[in-house]
Simulated scan of single mutants.
Amino acid sequence: MSERLRMILVGALLVSGVVAYFLIPASMAAYQLAAVLAGALLATAVFLTSERGRMVIAFSREAMAETMKVVWPTRKEVVQTTGVIMLMVSIMAIFLWLVDFGLLWLVRLIMRQET
């Protein structure tokens, strides 16, 4: 089956699950859910057998391998870094408040002199 036909089939399976959801009466909510899930699962199965699906699987495996290579920080490093960030945010907030207060004072001074 060609790649294009597989993608059309994937879309058709997804749409058929949604259409079935709306065709089944609301009193049969379990069947509605089953229809949507069946359409999604079948579409996923068809997608994963396609070339694009194999590329997604390969990418996922490579991403997991890269994740394993990451050197994660220790708890102590995370706490220290968080503390430094909170300190810098506080310092910047105070600085910006002082600048805002100074500019407000300057504008009020200028406005008083003009009247």
Results as ranks from 00 to 15, higher is better:
Met1Ile: 08
Glu3Ser: 05
Arg4Ser: 11
Arg4Phe: 15
Arg6Leu: 10
Leu9Glu: 00
Leu9Tyr: 03
Leu9Lys: 09
Val10Cys: 03
Gly11Tyr: 01
Gly11Thr: 06
Ser16Gln: 05
Ser16Cys: 03
Ser16Gly: 02
Gly17Asp: 02
Gly17His: 05
Gly17Met: 03
Ala20Glu: 02
Leu23Phe: 09
Leu23Arg: 04
Ile24Tyr: 00
Ile24Asp: 00
Pro25Arg: 07
Ser27Arg: 07
Ser27His: 02
Met28Glu: 13
Met28Arg: 11
Ala29Gln: 00
Ala30Asp: 09
Tyr31Gly: 11
Leu33Ala: 12
Leu33Asp: 04
Ala34Gly: 05
Ala34Phe: 04
Ala34Tyr: 02
Ala35Arg: 00
Val36Trp: 04
Val36Gly: 00
Leu37Asn: 05
Ala38Cys: 12
Ala38Ser: 14
Gly39Ile: 03
Ala40Tyr: 07
Leu42Tyr: 00
Ala45Val: 09
Val46His: 01
Phe47Pro: 01
Phe47Lys: 06
Phe47Gln: 03
Leu48Lys: 05
Leu48Arg: 01
Leu48Val: 03
Leu48Gln: 01
Ser50Val: 04
Glu51Met: 08
Glu51Lys: 07
Arg52Ile: 12
Arg52His: 05
Arg52Leu: 12
Arg52Asn: 10
Arg52Trp: 09
Arg54Gly: 05
Arg54Tyr: 13
Arg54Asp: 01
Ala58Ser: 05
Phe59Met: 07
Ser60Ile: 08
Arg61Cys: 07
Arg61Gly: 03
Ala63Tyr: 13
Ala63Met: 13
Met64Tyr: 15
Met64Asp: 10
Ala65Gln: 12
Ala65Asp: 02
Ala65Val: 00
Glu66Thr: 13
Glu66Met: 14
Glu66Phe: 13
Thr67Asp: 13
Met68Lys: 15
Lys69Asp: 07
Lys69Leu: 15
Lys69Trp: 14
Val70Thr: 09
Val71Ile: 14
Trp72Tyr: 14
Trp72Asn: 11
Pro73Val: 06
Thr74Arg: 04
Arg75Glu: 06
Arg75Tyr: 11
Lys76Ser: 12
Lys76Phe: 10
Lys76Thr: 13
Glu77Gln: 06
Gln80Ile: 13
Thr81Pro: 09
Thr82His: 12
Thr82Asn: 10
Thr82Ile: 10
Gly83Met: 10
Gly83Phe: 14
Gly83Glu: 09
Val84Ser: 07
Ile85Tyr: 11
Met86Val: 15
Leu87Gln: 09
Leu87Thr: 03
Met88Arg: 13
Val89Glu: 04
Val89Phe: 13
Ser90His: 01
Ser90Met: 14
Ser90Gly: 12
Ile91Met: 08
Ile91Tyr: 10
Met92Cys: 12
Met92Glu: 14
Ala93Gly: 08
Ala93Glu: 11
Ala93Asn: 10
Ile94Phe: 06
Ile94Ser: 02
Phe95Asn: 05
Trp97His: 14
Leu98Asp: 06
Leu98Glu: 11
Leu98Arg: 15
Val99Met: 07
Val99Phe: 04
Asp100Ala: 14
Gly102Thr: 07
Leu104His: 13
Leu106Ala: 15
Val107Trp: 03
Val107Thr: 02
Met111Leu: 15
Arg112Trp: 15
Arg112Ser: 14
Gln113Ser: 14
Gln113Pro: 07
Gln113His: 15
Glu114Ser: 11
Glu114Lys: 12
Thr115Met: 13
Thr115Asp: 06
Thr115Phe: 15
